[in-house]
Amino acid sequence: MNKEICIIWDWNGTLIDDVHTSLECINIILKKHQLATINRENYQQIFTFPVEQYYRKLGFDFTKISFAKLADEFIHEYKKRMLDAKLYPNVKDVLEHLQQMGVKQFVISAMEIGKLKLCIENKGISHYFEDILGLNNNYANGKMSLVKEFARQRKDLLYSSNIWMIGDTEHDFYIASELKWNSILVSQGHHSYSRLSAVGNIVLRNLNDIKKIFSNII
């Protein structure tokens, strides 16, 4: 008998197209602090977790302004725009198809949990997920510990499952690798195709092939 399939989705840049939103917000902060702005290509090459490292790459000097203050400035701008970001094409179709196939789906994100749930509810897709997990702060310092705690709490389910992590950054790949899970990387988000191809063995341009991949597995 085949193992049950569990998919752990990332949110930002994987299901929701918020790259433009994030880029717009960080450029507002860069201008405010008289630093050079960046374009989408630059952004996809330097964005990383923990986000504090990304801010250093942008040129911020934490001896002059704290990372916490910068993170608060970013979130202030992001909150004003976050509900304007759209789901990527075919997201609802893919989630519905997987649910009909009996796949258990979760969201685990480095986004603050309150904002994460608000965004997902706003898009009308909460019912597709067994659980939605996010951080308890706005500092986006990665989700490794969050995923490990999830794995510990749901070990009975995960032990008997074929687990897949789907995300748009190297961070998603490294988490899946450490936990010995399968991974699929999607390059329409916060990291470029070339960057993801250097680490992942399944890298998609978009979500269009997800249904086919899991139809073949199941």
Rank of each mutant, 00 (worst) to 15 (best):
M1R: 15
I5L: 12
C6S: 11
W11L: 00
W11Y: 03
W11D: 00
N12I: 03
N12Q: 12
G13I: 04
T14L: 07
L15I: 11
D18M: 09
H20D: 14
T21W: 00
E24Q: 14
N27T: 04
N27C: 05
I29H: 02
L30I: 07
Q34M: 14
I38Q: 08
N39C: 14
R40K: 15
E41P: 01
N42E: 15
Y43G: 03
Y43Q: 05
I46N: 05
F49Y: 09
P50A: 03
P50L: 02
E52I: 15
Q53N: 15
Q53Y: 12
Q53C: 12
Y54D: 07
Y55G: 00
L58F: 06
L58H: 02
F60W: 04
F60H: 04
F62I: 08
F62C: 11
T63Y: 10
S66E: 07
F67S: 01
A68M: 13
L70T: 00
A71Q: 10
D72E: 15
E77N: 05
M82S: 03
M82A: 07
M82R: 02
K86R: 14
Y88F: 12
P89T: 08
N90M: 10
N90E: 12
V94Q: 02
H97W: 14
H97R: 12
V103D: 03
V103A: 05
K104Q: 12
Q105E: 06
F106H: 08
F106P: 00
V107L: 03
I108G: 03
S109E: 04
M111C: 11
I113W: 08
I120Y: 08
K123F: 07
S126L: 13
S126P: 02
I132D: 05
L135R: 06
N137E: 08
A140F: 04
N141G: 11
K143C: 08
M144L: 15
V147F: 07
E149C: 13
E149S: 14
E149D: 14
E149M: 14
F150R: 04
A151R: 05
Q153E: 14
R154P: 10
R154V: 14
L157F: 09
Y159K: 15
S161Q: 15
I163G: 00
I163W: 02
W164R: 01
W164T: 04
I166T: 01
G167K: 00
T169V: 07
E170S: 12
D172F: 02
Y174R: 12
S177A: 15
I184S: 01
I184P: 01
I184R: 03
V186K: 04
S187D: 04
Q188T: 10
Q188F: 06
H191I: 06
H191Y: 08
Y193A: 08
S194K: 07
A198W: 06
G200H: 03
G200P: 03
R205I: 13
F214Q: 06
I218Y: 11
